[in-house]
Design a protein around this nucleic acid. Sequence first.
DNA 1: TATGTCATCCGAAACGTTTCGGATAAATAT
DNA 2: ATATTTATCCGAAACGTTTCGGATGACATA
Lengths: 345, 345
Amino acid sequence: MVTLKDISKATGVSVTQVSRALGGHDDVKEATRAKVREAAARLGYRTNAIAKGLKTGQTGFVAMVIPSDIDASGREIMFDMVVGISQAISRHGLKFLLHVVDSDAQVTGAFDLLFHGGGIDGFILTELQEPDPRVAYLQDRNMPFVVHGQYPGRPHPFVDLDNFRVGEVLAGWLLDAGHRRILFLNGQDHRIYSSTRTAGARHAFAVRGIDPSTLDVAHGPMTQDRGRAVALDRLRRPDRPTGIIAGNTMLARGVWDAAAACGLRIPEDLSVTAHDDVLAQYPASGFDPVPSVTRSALHAAWAALADTMSQTIAGGDPEPDSGLLAPEAVPGLSVAPPPAGSSRG
Amino acid sequence: MVTLKDISKATGVSVTQVSRALGGHDDVKEATRAKVREAAARLGYRTNAIAKGLKTGQTGFVAMVIPSDIDASGREIMFDMVVGISQAISRHGLKFLLHVVDSDAQVTGAFDLLFHGGGIDGFILTELQEPDPRVAYLQDRNMPFVVHGQYPGRPHPFVDLDNFRVGEVLAGWLLDAGHRRILFLNGQDHRIYSSTRTAGARHAFAVRGIDPSTLDVAHGPMTQDRGRAVALDRLRRPDRPTGIIAGNTMLARGVWDAAAACGLRIPEDLSVTAHDDVLAQYPASGFDPVPSVTRSALHAAWAALADTMSQTIAGGDPEPDSGLLAPEAVPGLSVAPPPAGSSRG
DNA sequence: TATGTCATCCGAAACGTTTCGGATAAATAT
DNA sequence: ATATTTATCCGAAACGTTTCGGATGACATA
């Protein structure tokens, strides 16, 4: 292994100055720095992360702890998350660690193990639930962490899509076109993003003087199958919805299927709005007509997450509310006034 | 942070002896060891992995490097792998690290980065292909690694299902029942496990004096949809196969679907054998009739993999061939002689 | 001349652990 | 009695890095 001492010997510069030269400190003569850099490159020097970690107390490892008993719909989205986050973390020169435990109950124990005994600098939390003990646990023990999502009542470093705004916009488009019987195909129950989107949608109702309780919200996994099934069920009722909000593009695909199955045209007979996470596997392309969507790339969220993580580890408290990502509102051709025959609710 | 020095102060035992007491060395009086253990527990001591790593040169981190551009069918299996491996690794007191790079080409670079600069003890390789530069790269640079699978021509630490035997048994059952027109629904092309299973199946043909080239092998992702599609295509031909080998239970499900669609009964009109990985998400239950399978739990492979990894890191070369896992042969009710009307091929 | 400023440098200590090479005293062997 | 073994212990060095607290000489200022 090539060490600073080797470079020191090779150049005649002290270990201290070699360290400072490579570390970019400013009390090193340019000529010296060049000489050191050259020798480091020539000898194939690589900073020993462990030694550096011992001195600085930081290793550059960021961990995410997940239970192995995730349900089928969770696993699919989880892998995309893991890949996206890992990539974003690597780009910041940090290293991503995935730690799998047997059950939810063991997650907090793993935090302790990894942080105190394992040289982990910080944690990433996703898929927040209500209630979720993880946030309080980490806060109480002063372990650095960043959340994808926000936990109510406890300010903490986070990155999150403005889900309230998403619900507001998607519902607003339908309401403004004249729809009153609206179905919201939302995500899993007890997920905070789901309820925040519902709140945003209901807010859109309220500011227009429409009773928010008339919004029909259906919770569940965000899959094409479920989208089709729930939409089909509702569309076959006599007082069928004239507008549907889809939580993501997979649910939207299910709605398109259901509309086709019922012989309903979009947007003439049924208006649809959706949120688009810009995932490669769930492209928003191929829809006819082009849907009206709120759009926010998940990979942008991962990048922001990595950024906030690296700030948090460095000790700088990120500014509150800086983590809220605004969705882009992209009107398409999937919204029209409700069909004349439909009675207004 | 609680250190050895703190325990030393609290107990009056030297740092050296505290270290040895906790480390399980034998030149420590039992009374002393108990006193030290008590103090460690009381103060909440946890070994500092970084400091230990600096001294011993090992960190307990094991990494797996994957490219982000895996195809859809790959992602599904990959997540199960990652979860299974991570869990098995944790159980050995090691820590699992998932590192995602943008493309295949960047994998070897990541090896260097993680090993030399990142304090990674060793690597786990899965999904071997032909050719695959990773094995030679790690071998040439003396980085410890364990492979799930075997690379031809280069002995290396590995854990693998005996895929030759799987092909041999699954084909043998059909041949011994009298089948001659057999379809093998195999895994992805260029995957070593696929070709090894094919070789095993062809060997079963050869030892029975039957022309191995009459075996029809179809490569592709191991999904229910593909199983149905390929089976349907073959079953509709005039010289349809009378026996089908399914590479896993999902493919088998597709075969069951296809048989139903063609009005064929199993096993009266069509015999089927399959391999069962014993995955929770792809249960082998719910089949009627119970299929004849070779069975080998993937999670047993992960456990063996973690075991071999920990030996390899410790410097002990695991015995060659100790990594080959024998499948269990579990006859069911899905194999019968071919229907009388079918002409023998 | 004496003092201060500046750029550049370096020795030594520190991070927490493990381990080498003995030290001590008691028990046993000669 | 002395020599040897045994059980138990400890100081100090080492791993590779960063950083504190100065040191040095050149130059400008008073």
